[in-house]
Amino acid sequence: MPGELPHPERSDIQLTDVLFALSDPERLAITRQLADGPLDMAECHATDPNLPKSTKSHFMKVLREAGVIRNEPNGRRRILTLRRDDLDALFPGLLDSVLRD
């Protein structure tokens, strides 16, 4: 399908990649926004409003490649979803502890 981005299979998600992706405060803020459900990429934002669009895109790429989020096309837009089921199955309790404020 056009616009599809590669996502790791559940079995390919590594704890070190997830921890690295969540170690950046801006990427963690984005992940926390997705904890309540999917968001349009345009609605999801980092805490620093002055970040360039390219930096935000890079944050999304790191989170997607680590297996933390799904980034899927929806017409001309993109929908971001937290991969809670996969992460909870692989690393029980990790998301709950990391997503606490």
Rank of each mutant, 00 (worst) to 15 (best):
R27S: 06
I79E: 12
L87F: 07
C44G: 03
D17M: 07
L87D: 07
D88A: 03
P92T: 02
S11K: 15
D96L: 09
E26Q: 15
A46E: 13
P73F: 05
N71M: 05
V18Y: 02
D17R: 14
R27H: 08
P38E: 15
F59M: 12
A21Y: 03
E43Q: 14
L82A: 08
V98Q: 11
I69L: 11
F59C: 09
Q33T: 02
K61I: 00
D36F: 12
E9T: 00
G37W: 11
D48W: 05
T81R: 15
L87I: 07
D86H: 08
N71H: 12
R64L: 03
P73I: 02
N74A: 14
S54G: 02
P25Q: 08
K53P: 09
V68G: 03
V98K: 11
Q14S: 06
V68T: 03
N71V: 00
R10K: 14
R77N: 13
L82Y: 07
A46W: 04
I79M: 15
R100D: 12
Q33E: 12
D101N: 10
E9Y: 07
G75P: 09
Q14G: 00
V62Y: 05
R64S: 01
L39W: 03
R64Q: 05
A89G: 11
F59Y: 15
R78P: 02
D40C: 08
A29N: 13
V98P: 02
V18W: 04
A89F: 12
M60Y: 12
P6T: 01
L90P: 06
T16I: 10
L22T: 00
K56R: 13
I30Q: 04
P52L: 10
D101C: 00
L94G: 01
Q14V: 08
I79C: 07
P38G: 10
M1H: 13
V68F: 05
I13K: 03
A21K: 06
I30W: 03
G93Y: 09
A89I: 00
H58M: 10
F20V: 08
L5P: 00
H7Y: 06
H45N: 13
H58S: 09
H7W: 03
P49M: 09
L39S: 05
S23Y: 08
N50I: 00
D12L: 12
N50V: 01
R27P: 05
R70D: 14
G37C: 10
R64Y: 01
S54V: 06
E26M: 10
D86Q: 10
L51C: 04
L19Y: 02
L95I: 07
P52K: 13
L34D: 06
P92W: 08
Q14I: 02
G37Q: 11
R100H: 10
L82V: 01
M41Q: 15
R10L: 14
E9F: 08
P38A: 15
P49W: 08
D96W: 06
S97Y: 11
P25E: 09
K61W: 07
R32L: 03
E65Q: 15
D96G: 13
P52W: 04
P38K: 12
H58L: 11
L28M: 13
H7I: 01
D86L: 02
T16A: 15
R76K: 13
M41H: 13
M1L: 12
P92M: 08
R10I: 09
L34G: 06
L63Q: 07
F91G: 02
A66Q: 08
R32Y: 05
T81Q: 13
L51R: 14
N74Q: 14
K61E: 15
D24Y: 10
